[in-house]
């Protein structure tokens, strides 16, 4: 009885801010500007297939780079002295206290044709390199902004591994390398999975990063959706349809990921 009344505000919250907007997206996606039912919007999404492919591809690259950079960092972090760990975590979080836009602007000034990096390159005699407005710059922006979301879940799960399990593995004859490959790595997979989710989803749907660092040539889905609502090509119905398709695509991706996770848990013994 009591627990039910406690739930009410949350249910209201979910209803007003999650369920109703989702229904609106659905409604807009399947109607035209005068409110009649149509599937034309969904069909039109197909015209932007290349944008979808680019978004997912760049998001994927950024995610892979985040895993490659983030995992060793998270592992190293979990192995240093506990009081140092706290300090390092604060350092890691520090940029996140700053506005997202500001951070991306900062990268803009660094990567610009006469920005910091190019001036340095010219100074040491390499000459100007076109850095800004490339897909590489977009990936860099994604990695920079989302890396902490990869490190934190992996760090959390590694630091929670019971030290006795590691000692048991050593005791049974496992060297440091074997302890890592047979115990720590498989046990940290769930952290990697949630890190991937937390990096991949925002990376695929980002629009600020691509707009500022990618220029006009690197439009992503996020930019496309933004344009339908705020930009010159005002069309909220198409925008909703694109959002819907993106949501479904991400859901499928996550479904595939979770499948991996489950397999790892039950089939863990088979990884040799």
């Amino acid at each position: 009885m009591k627990s039910k009344s406690i739930n009410i505000p949350y249910i209201l919250w979910i209803g007003i801010f999650i369920v109703v907007p989702l229904i609106l997206v659905l409604l807009f996606a399947f109607t035209d500007s005068s409110g009649n039912f149509t599937i034309e919007n969904i069909i039109n999404v197909g015209n932007y297939a290349s944008v979808f492919v680019r978004s997912i591809w760049l998001g994927l690259i950024a995610t892979v780079i985040c895993v490659i950079l983030g995992y060793p960092m998270a592992y190293a972090l979990s192995k240093i002295a506990p009081n140092m760990q706290e300090f390092m975590i604060v350092l890691l979080m520090l940029p996140m206290w700053m506005n997202f836009l500001l951070r991306t602007y900062a990268w803009m000034t660094i990567l610009e044709n006469n920005g910091l990096l190019n001036r340095l390159l010219m100074f040491i005699g390499i000459g100007q390199v076109n850095l800004i407005n490339t897909s590489g710059a977009v990936v860099l922006g994604m990695v920079y902004n989302f890396l902490p979301y990869m490190i934190l879940p992996i760090y959390t799960i590694i630091s929670r591994i019971d030290n006795r399990i590691i000692e048991a593995a050593q005791d049974l004859g496992a060297s440091r390398r074997k302890v890592f490959s047979k115990i720590i790595l498989p046990l940290s997979i769930p952290g990697v999975i949630s890190g991937i989710t937390m990096v991949f989803v925002p990376a695929v749907s980002t629009f600020i990063i691509s707009k500022m660092l990618g220029g006009g040539a690197n439009i992503l889905i996020g930019d496309l959706i933004e344009m339908q609502f705020l930009g010159s090509s005002y069309n909220p119905n198409l925008g909703s349809a694109i959002s819907l398709v993106l949501m479904i695509l991400i859901m499928i991706c996550m479904g595939i990921m979770n499948q991996f996770d489950h397999e790892d848990n039950s089939m863990g013994g088979m990884i040799i």
Binding site: D162, R164, I165, E167, A168, A169, Q170, D171, L172, G173, A174, S175, K178, K182, I183, P186, L187, D264, N265, G268, G269, I272
Partner: peptide
Amino acid sequence: HKREVNTIFQKYALFPHLNVYENVAFGMRV
């Protein structure tokens, strides 16, 4: 890992990601 002694730990410290067979086989696998 180079000593010819093995330990049974307090609370057992079994490997949670491995099944019974692979837990017992662990030492021989490495």
